[in-house]
């Protein structure tokens, strides 16, 4: 995935971008989020080779009107779980960007990451497919 120095530089860049929204991710938070990715992958029998989805979610949810200082991190964990649940339901022919875009679009509309939202995303992605 990343070596330690690469990871540090990615964290720095991310935090610079999050600064404008008033958020800051500590190293422990990043470790916990990466573990969350691993847990979600295990739960849905997937193997992830990259953390680019995690970085995309971190950036996107920072801009979410439903997030605040207390809800930002729990929301990120939910988003990770929801993304990998959706990812496991579709083959590679539906690309990562499409799934992420659909998930975030519906989140912006309804403000949650729950079962109903996943059903809505599935319906939308099936229509697109």
């Amino acid at each position: 995935m990343h070596t330690t120095s690469q990871a540090l530089s990615v964290n720095q860049t991310l935090n610079q971008q999050l600064q404008s929204y008033g958020y800051h991710l500590r190293a422990e938070d990043m470790t916990a989020l990466k573990q969350s990715v691993q847990h979600a992958c295990s739960a849905f029998d997937l193997v992830e080779s990259d953390y680019h989805i995690l970085y995309e979610l971190i950036k996107a949810l920072a801009a979410s009107p439903y997030a605040d200082a207390t809800r930002y991190l729990p929301m990120l964990h939910d988003a990770i779980f929801s993304y990998y649940q959706l990812r496991s339901l579709f083959s590679w022919q539906v690309n990562d960007a499409t799934i992420l875009h659909t998930l975030l679009t519906f989140h912006m509309q309804y403000g949650t990451f729950d079962k109903v939202l996943i059903k809505r995303c599935c319906k939308q992605l099936k229509i697109r497919k």
Binding site: V47, H52, I53, W92, N95
Partner: peptide, 14 residues
């Protein structure tokens, strides 16, 4: 395998 569509594959494929 994924034609650059995904960074994620099912465990058995990995």
């Amino acid at each position: 395998y994924t034609h650059h569509n995904s960074s994620c594959v099912p465990r058995h494929v990995a």
